[in-house]
């Protein structure tokens, strides 16, 4: 059983929902990332989504774009991100880490070399935003052969037949994008989300995470009603952006505590 599967199994037993915060590796500074990861776990993260900075993050809104730019200003590469995961694993061997990023840095490293190194570093899942299932069969095979879960996005516009194709290829969990648009967009419609989640549940037993529009404790709580995991990205990155290096860890912890208690209050 992979670390991600183990995490969801344990939560299910406890009747709890997963909280998955996203931060971009190297934002605001590479030396803070591992500390931030530990703090996320301490304040209630069940899985950490770690963004791999990319120069052209087409699917991201302005908040996560700026995080990428801050990280790239410190020359944070995929190599560095893997080193950060490795450093995190020195003290934490239980919390799953999912890398989220774009295809080009992975291809520049070489897909097989990346898969080997990700495994060695202790990565549990990989979400490559611009790899739709039709273009990444070989990559998914490489990941699965190393017991790394390939995570895929599903969107409100994904046709039911395509949902089936994607969930058949995915493992660990699937990530439902709760609205049309880029990361950090507004106006999440919870009734619509619930409807789509029901369709996905009809096709897979995989846990379902929901993200792209979780603004605050209230939306986190309402998502937790219908999904297995709540993914908080832009809001988390915003807290980082609005902090100084001195208070960033404390501010992230405060936001996490608020989100965790909202999700647990279900």
């Amino acid at each position: 059983m992979s670390r991600i599967q183990q995490t969801f199994a344990t939560l299910k037993q406890q009747g709890k929902k997963a909280l998955i915060p996203y931060i971009t590796a190297g934002d605001p500074h590479p030396r803070l990332t591992v500390d931030l990861m530990h703090e996320l776990v301490r304040t209630g993260a069940d899985i950490i989504e770690l963004g791999v900075p990319f120069s052209d993050p087409m699917a991201d809104g302005p908040v996560i774009q700026r995080a990428s730019e801050r990280a790239l200003a410190h020359h944070v590469s995929l190599n560095h991100v893997l080193e950060m995961v490795q450093a995190f694993r020195m003290k934490n061997t239980t919390t799953p880490v999912v890398l989220m990023g774009y295809a080009n840095p992975v291809e520049a490293m070489g897909t097989e070399r990346f898969a080997d190194r990700a495994k060695a570093a202790g990565v549990d899942g990989v979400l490559t935003v611009d790899y739709p299932p039709e273009e990444c069969g070989e990559f998914v095979r490489l990941l699965k052969a190393r017991n790394i879960d390939p995570i895929f996005l599903l969107s409100p516009t994904t046709e039911p037949a395509r949902v089936q194709t994607i969930v058949d290829m995915a493992s660990g969990f699937v990530y439902y994008v709760s609205l049309r648009g880029v990361t950090g967009a507004q106006n999440l419609d919870i009734v619509d989300v619930a409807k789509h989640i029901a369709i996905i549940r009809g096709k897979t037993g995989l846990p379902i995470g929901v993200g792209f529009g979780v603004r605050d404790a209230a939306t986190a709580k309402s998502i937790a009603h219908v999904a297995d995991a709540v993914v908080v990205g832009s809001r988390m990155v915003q807290a980082i952006e609005q902090s100084s290096e001195q208070n960033v860890v404390a501010n992230v912890a405060a936001l996490m505590t608020e989100l965790r208690s909202a999700i647990n209050s279900n």
């Binding site: 087409m58 739709p132 969107s155 395509r162």
Partner: peptide, 20 residues
């Protein structure tokens, strides 16, 4: 049919754009 010119081209976008 999926836009490949030999090994080039294709469709490399987030799922949110696939339907469009």
């Amino acid at each position: 049919a999926r836009g490949h010119f030999g090994p080039y081209g294709g469709i490399f976008v987030a799922e949110t754009l696939i339907e469009a």
